[in-house]
Design a protein around this nucleic acid. Sequence first.
DNA 1: ACACTTAGTCAGTGCATCTGACCAAATACG
DNA 2: CGTATTTGGTCAGATGCACTGACTAAGTGT
Lengths: 143, 143
Amino acid sequence: MADEPNTGLLLYIPYRWLENRVFAAMTEAGYDITTAQMKLMQRVGPEGTRLTDLAEQAQVTKQTGGFLVDQLEKGGWVERVPDPTDKRARLVCLSDKAKEAIPVAEAAVAQAEAEWQAHLGKQGMAQLRHALTRLREITDPYA
Amino acid sequence: MADEPNTGLLLYIPYRWLENRVFAAMTEAGYDITTAQMKLMQRVGPEGTRLTDLAEQAQVTKQTGGFLVDQLEKGGWVERVPDPTDKRARLVCLSDKAKEAIPVAEAAVAQAEAEWQAHLGKQGMAQLRHALTRLREITDPYA
DNA sequence: ACACTTAGTCAGTGCATCTGACCAAATACG
DNA sequence: CGTATTTGGTCAGATGCACTGACTAAGTGT
């Protein structure tokens, strides 16, 4: 089906690799969290974020988002607090545990990116990020 | 958790977008197949491929691979034929239906990539592919 | 006030993935 | 040659994540 690998596959390979790296780092540091949970949690803002917004940004249905927030809540990563401005809504906020864990994840990402930069060269890495950022303009409904 | 989006997210966004595009094109053309099935099927070689190899290349366990091949077989995409050189093994081969469908998927990919090229410029696209190909060297156990 | 939209939940389903246990054929080695 | 190990694949069971559909409750607009 493919002699020249399509760009999708080329994107997927390093993505998956990075995801596994971060997941492994978190596990090793004793944090029990899944990639889907991380993906959602990444989107939680400093003042808290509504479930609907979270789900939309992570490109899942609000049901799926709700399910993930349930897991995150059980794991002590987030809390749901009432939104003072809207009685229907609740804000998902990061717990202290989550705030502690963030540097661990960030360090794993940083290390992986450093390895990539070492391989591609500083300029190559910058070009890659630039191209991807531009691509985001036409592929991310949330850009 | 992120002010500057990490490279993983940047990779994921266009990947997911492309996957959705291709999936939608297949669905519209009347082909009923899932992305996971496509991912596996992509790896089937012209002479057929062993389940174990498929699973390994797609980075799933052989159990998962077997499950996906079951689905593909039910959908009439592939057949399992005995491997003449090894009585334990069976080769997964593409059916005529699959061979027909490939151009549809390829056209969808080509169109999406053309849109990307229009946005990034010919040179930008070439640089992107080049960087990703180089990255594959250190992130793909199958490079 | 009444209709409509928005925030979120509940119930049910299916797909993709994993681990662990297992069998049978092929290969390696003493 | 015969046993031990590796390799190809399946079965059984469980979990995670995603979906659709139907619903409640609160806010919004005319």
